[in-house]
Design a protein around this nucleic acid. Structure first.
Lengths: 212, 212
DNA sequence: TAGATTGTTAATCGATTAACAATC
DNA sequence: TAGATTGTTAATCGATTAACAATC
């Protein structure tokens, strides 16, 4: 399998296929057309997306739901458990820790960090809150942790990012509204809740779009 | 100004221009090139995006930061206060209520709804938690509310959506991982935190992308 | 006026879709 | 084998970029 350049849009759709397959009978087969219909895509789109990564279907039959699900999980690397840490224990950070979705098998929160003396040392959902300064030691001593969820206030965002990247973090889910600077080899996904609300506000006046 | 079909990507970038302009001196002028550089876009992109909505620049000088900021706010409809309600008061819903960003001028949380007897009647940040069944009356009696943030558990998502849409909601910020069905004239933006994490997990192994 | 930068048209690039030979 | 549906190539569509005349 050659490493062809994959578009982020393909990966985004892969997560949607996964969501969709979860609700179906694992033993059944589904055609690209059926799967596409469920999500408002085209059958060609589905086949093209998957063909980037190999051949997962059976001609004349379609894709077996169970194997397709597990194949997509493998592509995304979520067939195994990936350790994550949460940086910043404000309201949002706390909420994410308890989010049942995040406690699924594929991601495992192994550390929680903040810089407030009020929070350091307390426990949240069985996790001790640590001083953010401990990050470098924590990352060295513990099992591999590559992903950090950053929910600090925006004035601290860049500084915290520099620090955790230097400490070895390779991927950041950024909830701050700051356009983070980081080295080329650090993956970043931004979730800007307020921006999404602004987008929604635009569309509510015109209609057209069934949000991305 | 003719109503040309605008791509969602344009609106997404508009919110980014806004974020960027916030940190600059209002009286200064900025060229499309300077603005583009700050975000890793091209100057042509910036000019093209803006030209969809009118002429905001001064040839030879660029765009005045203060007026461009306020012009983009007007395009997005966030120059005025838009009322919103929050449906579902789990951890995430509660966090959003307290999110300082959401308490900015342009959005105003006027109602909070849940169906749990434990929560109904309590107060969160000065807002009384109401029974979700009251939504229709609430929307009729109060000032105009068109936007709902939905943070209910996924099994309840579609049912709740049907109910609030029937009650008059015109736009939904959907935090559930469900692909909501709604009439054509209801705008929906989806924020799927877990899916974002999955995407990030893919990119962390290859690198390439500075999340969308 | 000369210099700078816009707004816009035309060219390019990438992503989606249609079509079909391969094959279960 | 006949019917169905894949994987893939070619055609289409839309979005980005380059280029430049308009103009402050």
């Amino acid at each position: 399998m050659k490493e062809i350049k994959i578009s982020p849009k393909v990966i985004e759709r892969l997560t949607k296929y996964l969501r969709c397959l979860e609700n179906l009978t694992p033993e059944d087969y589904i055609s690209s057309e059926e799967l596409a219909d469920k999500m408002g895509f085209t059958a060609a789109q589905v086949r093209k997306d998957l063909s980037n990564f190999g051949e997962f279907g059976v001609r004349g039959k379609g894709y077996q739901i169970r194997t397709l699900h597990s194949d997509i999980e493998k592509i995304l690397g979520v067939h195994k458990t990936n350790n994550i840490v949460i940086i910043g224990l404000g309201r949002l950070g706390s909420a994410l820790i308890s989010e049942s979705e995040f406690t699924k098998e594929s991601f495992n929160i192994v550390g929680v960090f903040d810089n407030s003396p009020d929070k350091i040392g307390t426990e949240v959902r069985g996790l001790k809150v640590r001083d953010i300064k401990e990050i470098p030691y924590f990352l060295k001593s513990k099992e591999k942790v590559e992903i950090a969820i950053v929910t600090v206030p925006k004035y601290a965002a860049q500084e915290v990012t520099d620090f955790i990247v230097k400490s070895g973090i390779k991927a950041i889910l950024n909830f701050t509204p700051v356009n983070l600077e980081a080295p080329e080899n650090v993956a970043i996904q931004n979730i800007d809740l307020y921006a999404k609300l602004q987008e929604l506000n635009y569309w509510k006046e015109r209609i057209l779009v069934r949000g991305e």
